[in-house]
Design a protein around this nucleic acid. Structure first.
Lengths: 248, 248
DNA sequence: CGGACGGTTGAATCACGTCAAATGCGGTGG
DNA sequence: CCACCGCATTTGACGTGATTCAACCGTCCG
């Protein structure tokens, strides 16, 4: 798992796994050529901090593979996750010096970075990048707002079910599987990270996971491998409309 | 208060109160001319619903005056506010048919609306609008994330203090007053709306307001008029760094 | 006057947090 | 191979902050 980094040699954009979803999704060949000039790859090990809140950022970029978290921390140590960065998600904000959040690699992580200054210039001149970034930011805003409902109004059990359904759905859409039949995936988060995501303590997370298992909503193989026998059931537990909002 | 609507006759953009903050902030004379052609004004009374979640939206627009809320509701009636729309804030999402949220006028409200189709076309052709919208959306995303920390990790008392400091600060910046000396403003929200904002019950809101009053953090004149004798003290109660992040 | 509405307050309950101890597992070294 | 450690996780007992349910108040308005 340590030497995975070796295969992290620079890709060509053409065969980049996030080519069609990332901030560069709408770029044409010319745009890509310009991007190639200002881009570079960086890899991080699981647990490593990508940026500290308040630190100066001289790049922006996309998650190519792996998972990272965006967290905010209060002086007394209480922390809340405010973003979960999956492949194709964008990191950093054009037009701002420092990072507003801690960014931490949860798994081994590969990032495609762009030097910030030239990237900002490119945003002014080529519309494709800015358009796509707007679209992605609007999506993130919607996700953040859904998350606010979870944090503000759902019970612990509903929160867990919501998280599992989000990850399960996202995983299914990545792997092009439908939501019929049992859904199996690895939970890429520790109990503590789940707690930070949901505004709970890790003990409560653990208890509710056990409860969902006991009640047959989920099955666990080891601590991290989750299977969902009935996705509709999980949606009910999450308190969500179980209408067909799949593949959003 | 009913006949306020009468003075709501169409403005010229030139003397629009939100000219320099709204989505049109960066537009030049030519851009404005194009906008004028697709814009119209709509007014709403306090309590009126601007759009229901799921309804088709044939416009986007800016809040010119008054306050509106963005809320999400679960089937069983639990509701969470996910946005507080103050003058200059943008409503609606280009490239989407329906509204994802309920939008409700909290006070009497004036909106500057643009027909959606032509607005979307304009976004493609004139960069100023899209650039400004991206900037505003990124700001909203930051606000949503700060709010997530409030919802997930703060106590009831801290939540109330956070809300008061947000409204107080915003009010001070609108009226060009500093945060030195006592700060006085009208609370534009009912206890219930505050509860929906903070993920609390209205009883808890009421109790904590009383507690903050009892402890001298705030003073109330009637139910709605708040004065903050010491803003730093309020920030402490909110659990925020009381550093000088003013006028962001 | 009476009813609607927003707000306050009290008492009882409960969901979740806190504190503490136990379990299980992979890794490391003897 | 086994003893030992570190770490994530589970589980239990207990405390508490926020919700729930309910009574009550003041103001506005027909």
């Amino acid at each position: 798992m340590l030497k995975e980094q070796i295969k992290s040699l620079p890709h060509e954009c053409d065969d980049c796994p996030i080519r069609h979803r990332a901030v560069c999704a709408r770029c044409d060949a010319d745009d890509l050529e310009r991007l190639e000039e200002i881009k570079y790859y960086r890899s991080f090990q699981a647990g490593q901090t990508v940026i500290w809140s308040g630190d100066k950022m001289d790049f922006v970029g996309s998650v190519v593979s792996g998972i990272a978290t965006l967290t905010q921390t209060m002086e007394d140590g209480r922390t809340q996750m405010v973003g979960l960065l999956l492949p194709s998600d964008f990191v950093g904000r054009p037009g701002r010096e420092g990072s507003a959040y801690d960014v931490v690699a949860t798994t081994d992580l590969m990032m495609c970075c762009f030097r910030k200054k030239p990237f900002e210039e490119m945003m002014e001149t080529t519309p494709h990048v800015a358009q796509r970034l707007l679209e992605m930011t609007l999506d993130e805003l919607d996700a953040a707002r859904e998350w606010m409902l979870v944090l503000g109004r759902k019970t612990a059990r509903e929160k867990i079910a919501s998280l599992l359904s989000i990850i399960g759905r996202r995983d299914a859409s990545l792997n092009l599987r439908g939501t019929k039949g049992p859904l199996v995936f690895d939970l890429p988060l520790t109990r503590e990270a789940m707690a930070d995501y949901l505004g709970l303590t890790l003990e409560t997370v653990s208890r509710q996971m056990s409860a969902l298992k006991r009640d047959g909503v989920i099955t666990l193989e080891g601590k991290r491998n989750v299977t969902i026998p009935d996705f509709g059931r999980l949606m009910d537990e999450a308190g969500d409309d179980s209408d067909g909002g799949m593949f959003a």
